[in-house]
Nucleic acid binder design. Structure first.
Lengths: 351, 351
DNA sequence: CTGAAAGCGCTTACAG
DNA sequence: CTGAAAGCGCTTACAG
């Protein structure tokens, strides 16, 4: 019955191999795991029986015995049900997965909306050796998820999010978004912009907040007006386009528009064009992230290249290290970002 | 020692709950699984002990006992190490993951290059109840992976790939790419195009091949010249841009360029502009897939909307059904695609 | 309504 | 160099 239900018909176990090889199960186990001493003759015989019988060890049994899963869970919390639509997210997932695969770990992937939070017990079916989380939503919502993850009692890596409490078995891996915002704004100031907008989604991303903070720092240093925040609702093309167009109509064009990410910048660029403005002559525009997409538009976007793949890879690296060493060595790791000049801003960059 | 290595300190087991509740372990199990009859008083007591002790059942133990994993594996084989960079891929992953999560299954994700194929035993660490695969590479390479997956002895779903052999416990889930190609080409013919190029990556995607076949069918029916295939090397922006520009210089502009997907069409559009051509006046351009990206460009791309999310969701649906029913009911499912008029082609569509 | 026993497939000490 | 025994944490018949 259970078999008919689609479970593996894994008929051959270590005992079968042992019987046919005329040894004990534990000798087979020793051959499999290289532990203990087994004569080469016996080992060779066992190996051939394994091949002949098509024996494959049960990882479920090994997991139970060793209480290790060789599995890392990744949770992505975003409003968009298509939770992988942002290339910044996918690059992190890819970086993590590639690292884990190379180190014989598996990745369990799960996406949720901030509002999907239920009371307790959400991830208990995952049973991983560690968790990696990429969260959006307001601080309260993110905290709920972080607490829930902490309840799992496994090491936790927070991507683009600060570690909330010292006593947690947790590390934070960020890129220097604040610096990125600073670079962008300094560049714009050096290009003569005095009045700027920042385009943000309503959903709170810690990364976006940091970018804005960097922008503000640069403008303050330069003695330029703080940027006006345009809330775009969600960060989709349509919403951003409409919000930008509405703002243009209401307030007239600023000197520069700082997109929360490349996609938003591109939507804003289209809105500017449709409003009759030339980029960069009438209004300069910048993005953030620097994936392939920034080149799809004309003029090519000035942006900041994110270390997304490296974020994911680093997450995997520190997590596996943590699993071996018993604790994280740091509370936070920050990866650098780099400024990328395009044609959507001027080039008389004084930096 | 093992604990220090980062395994869960799951100290409390079903036995602990049983002891504290003053019942046997199996009564606790009955409460947990709703099976068997337990008096409401006992059940309530046990539930409160569970909460108080923070007991969480071991899924590893349950898996071993039941020899079911509640896990589906997804394999993505692409040349690009950033194996989630194509939105067509991510939408399928998302569709699958969302469906699985809603049905209490987990998704294990793994990406590989076609050339990463090793001899046998590649996925044995995955131990899932079923596998879903999205493959690229030439037919021979894809066959290697399919065979390897078949060796796992679990039901297999092939996305955008035909089932190679009748006797496999396997189903193929495709969208009607051929029809999509047909719609695109018919549209272009109705818009006056007589000489066309198709832009393809060197890597073989079954989906792309089907699109070309549809294009050819339409042109043949219309008595128009078969399209010229421009091999772009890989499907990245840079490669496609350069290949298109080189072809323009060598052969002059065709009436229309049919991109293998939206990204390639956008790169080609940029190449045409840089070559001094107007779109669509001098050359019409079409994409394929219709994710948000097709709107990022100016003019907006004429394309075909793919059912990517539905492909992934359907994969999950038929797989879980198969797990319950013991066999797949069909060999293949084909989802429809829809034509999407943009401004990168004319609109005097006679269809 | 509740329990004692067996067993899922491994690996880890401990003997020999 | 090799093996018998115990146990990882569950659930499934089978009794009572």
């Amino acid at each position: 019955m259970d078999k008919a239900k689609g479970s593996k018909q894994k008929d051959v176990t270590i005992k079968d191999v042992a019987r046919v090889s005329e040894v004990s199960a534990m000798t087979v186990s020793n051959v499999l795991n290289g532990s203990g001493r087994v004569s080469e003759a016996t080992a060779a015989r066992i190996r051939s029986v394994i091949k002949q019988l098509g024996y494959r060890p049960s990882v479920a049994a090994r997991r139970l015995r060793l209480s290790r899963q060789w599995t890392i869970g990744m949770l992505i919390v975003v409003e968009d049900p298509n939770f992988l639509s942002d290339p910044f997210t996918t690059a992190q997932v890819t970086g993590l997965t590639n690292y884990l695969t190379a180190n014989s770990y598996s990745l369990i992937l799960r996406g949720m909306k901030p509002s999907d939070f239920r009371t307790s017990g959400m991830f208990q079916d995952i049973e991983a050796d560690g968790m990696v989380a990429l969260l959006s939503g307001n601080e309260e919502q993110r905290d709920l998820f972080i607490n829930e993850l902490a309840n799992l009692n496994v090491p936790l890596v927070l991507l683009e999010e600060h570690k909330p409490r010292q006593d947690m078995d947790c590390i934070s891996i960020c890129q220097n978004d604040e610096e990125g915002g600073y670079l962008i704004a300094s560049h714009l100031v050096s290009c003569g912009a005095k009045q700027m907008w920042t385009l943000l989604p309503s959903a709170e991303w810690p990364a976006m907040k940091a970018r804005v903070a960097g922008v503000q720092r640069a403008l303050k240093e330069a003695g330029v007006l703080a940027p006006e925040v345009i809330d775009c609702g969600d960060e989709s093309y349509d919403f951003t386009y409409r919000a930008t167009l509405a703002a243009l109509k209401q307030k007239g064009a600023p000197h520069a528009i700082i997109g929360g990410n490349d996609q938003m910048a591109i939507a804003a660029m289209k809105a500017c064009k449709d409003y009759g403005l030339c980029v960069p002559e009438d209004v300069q525009i910048t993005g953030f992230n620097g994936f392939d997409i920034w080149r799809y538009v004309d003029p090519v976007l000035t942006t900041v290249c994110s270390a997304a793949h490296a974020l994911g890879e680093t997450a995997g690296k520190v997590l596996i290290k943590r699993l071996h060493e018993g604790r994280f060595r740091q509370d936070e790791i920050t990866l650098p970002v780099t400024f990328q000049q395009g044609s959507s801003t001027f080039k008389n960059n004084l930096l």
